[in-house]
Nucleic acid binder design. Structure first.
Length: 479
RNA sequence: GGCACCGUAGCCAAGUUGGUAAGGCAAGGGACUGCAAAUCCCUCAUACCCCGGUUCGAAUCCGGGCGGUGCCUCCA
């Protein structure tokens, strides 16, 4: 099956055709770093990470660019409030964000350009726009003249007259038309030197949109394959990028535009004003990073996801099931002294998974396919199937999970780590649990099942579940 | 007001270039177990917000409603 992608530009699912055969250039608008990243950022990161992994796995040579916006009004304001230099402030949050990304198993992009490191490219692009009559300088600011670009609105399906009514001019702005937007902002009194650059129009700093036009062109060329980001960027950010890039070059910016849906909380968009804002960091204190990732991948990237504890718990259960199955499979093969070498994946399952991912990155469908494979692993082990058969299924489950960026750890390590996270969430003391288990083992040896059951019930009441097996007694935290 | 999106079982969620409803959770039954848990097997939507229309055939297309969300200002 060919790769099919839903394109915001055409509002339909289309067969993908690359600019250059076998290669895909992708630019995704990253994060503006003025605070810890939230679950919405996690969704964007996870969606495009899974997409890139899937593309590589299916044989595409991918050039993936994800930028950092490290200069903007909010960064400057926040940094000022804390008496910190804006550049250092932004750099600090990039570091914090990278920690979160690691926990979510997000791979680094091929290039992660920062806006502040591409000021000359932006100045050059702005110069070209002025030259071509699409932009004008006014008292140290430079604005893009929206009316000079006839295609304006083609991505967000808006017409200029509708926009006109809602547009407004901030005090101090020098716009000729309220719809025009800033390419360059003159430095204001008191702004730190670290966020002020010299330009032909005087000292200042770039507007938000121009960085993506400049950086995407630098790393991916004039017309590239895929441009992505959150749905809220469609207007005005991506619309403005298109206007800048296409007005400057006369060519299409990107052939496919992909936008991920929002994460909502209690069915409302997260926002600071509503106070329903959840940072990744906050969640990682309670949940396993892979469980969060699985939660985000369980819904198609374009649809909204409603964040609930129950939904994350559900995803957590799946990750648990995956690791338990891997551990059981590994144990089975080693017990059977299996030495069949590198097993072949099971074609049927690989094909079903691949079809799902190539259908507009349908991770929900793909997850269901993977789960089925784990189910087969367990079923065949229970049926005492030949090790070679189990090995093939196990290998398939692992491979496909890795494409989704799941199950990255050694099973036994993961199970132990996950249990600690869960115990912390529930306020359970692992050492105390171990002590009680010792007591119960003694009771069971003495055939005092009444005492043994009493201990189990006591532990169950605080959310600890015991598992008696041939190797002794193990425990898990109930969700 | 303009522009998009969404409405599928108790819950979550695929399927929407039409062909007769994936999967998960929960629930019930069974195997296994000292009892459990884990695991496996079986059952679980004549039905896809409502009303019309097109069609041999519609959850999928068209029209009209109802309900919800987002964007139109910074926002993943």
């Amino acid at each position: 099956m060919p790769l099919r992608l839903f394109n915001t530009l055409t509002d339909e699912k289309q067969d993908f055709t690359p600019v250059r055969p076998g290669r895909i250039g992708i630019y995704v608008c990253g994060i503006t770093v003025y605070d810890l990243a939230h679950v919405g950022h996690a969704r964007m990161l996870t969606a495009f990470d899974a997409a890139v992994r899937a593309l590589r796995w299916t044989g595409w040579q991918v050039n993936f660019v994800r930028n950092w916006t490290d200069v903007d009004d909010k960064i400057i304001r926040r940094a000022n409030e804390r008496g910190e230099d804006p550049q250092q402030f932004a750099a600090r949050f990039i570091d914090e964000c990278r920690k979160d990304m690691q926990a979510l198993n997000i791979l680094p992009a091929d290039a992660e350009p920062k806006a502040t490191e591409h000021i000359p490219e932006m100045i050059e692009l702005i110069g070209k726009l002025i030259e071509r009559g699409h932009a004008y300088a006014a008292k140290g600011d430079v604005y893009f003249s929206v009316r000079s670009f006839p295609d304006y609105g083609k991505l967000s399906k808006r017409n200029l007259d509708d926009l006109q009514s809602g547009a407004r001019v901030e005090p101090g702005e020098q716009k000729r038309d309220p719809l025009d937007f800033a390419l360059w902002k003159a430095a204001k009194p008191g702004e730190p030197a670290s966020v002020t650059w010299q330009s032909p129009w005087g000292p200042g700093r770039p507007g938000w949109h121009i960085e993506c036009s400049a950086m995407s062109q630098k790393y991916l060329g004039i017309t590239f394959d895929v441009h992505g980001g959150g749905k809220d960027l469609v207007f005005p950010h991506h619309e403005n990028e298109i206007a800048q890039s296409e007005a400057a070059s006369g060519n299409q910016l990107a052939n496919f535009w992909l936008h991920n849906g929002f994460v909502t909380i209690d069915a409302e968009k997260m926002s600071k004003s509503l106070g329903n804002f959840r940072t990744i960091r906050d969640l990682l204190g309670q949940w396993d990073g892979e469980a969060l990732r699985a939660f985000l991948l369980a819904t198609h990237y374009r649809h909204p996801i409603n964040f609930t504890e129950a939904a994350v718990a559900d995803a957590d259960r799946r990750i648990e099931y995956f690791y338990e199955t891997l551990a059981k499979g590994d144990a089975y093969l080693s017990q059977k002294k299996y030495t069949g070498g590198e097993p072949r994946p099971v074609d049927e399952h690989v094909a079903a998974f691949r079809d799902a991912m190539e259908d507009d990155f349908n991770t929900a469908e793909a997850m269901a396919r993977v789960e089925r494979v784990y189910g087969f692993v367990n079923a065949r082990i229970d049926a005492k199937a030949p090790p070679a058969e189990v090995a093939a299924l196990l290998h398939t489950a692992r491979t496909l999970s890795h494409v989704l960026g799941l199950v990255a750890r050694a099973p036994l390590d993961a199970i132990r780590e996950r249990r600690l996270v869960a115990a912390r969430r529930k306020g359970i003391d692992p050492a105390e649990v171990d002590r009680q288990i010792e007591e119960r083992i003694a009771a069971r040896k003495a055939k005092d099942f009444k005492a043994a059951d009493a201990i189990r019930n006591k532990l169950a009441s605080i959310g600890v579940e015991l598992r008696d097996g041939p190797q002794g007694t193990d425990w898990r935290v109930l969700l």
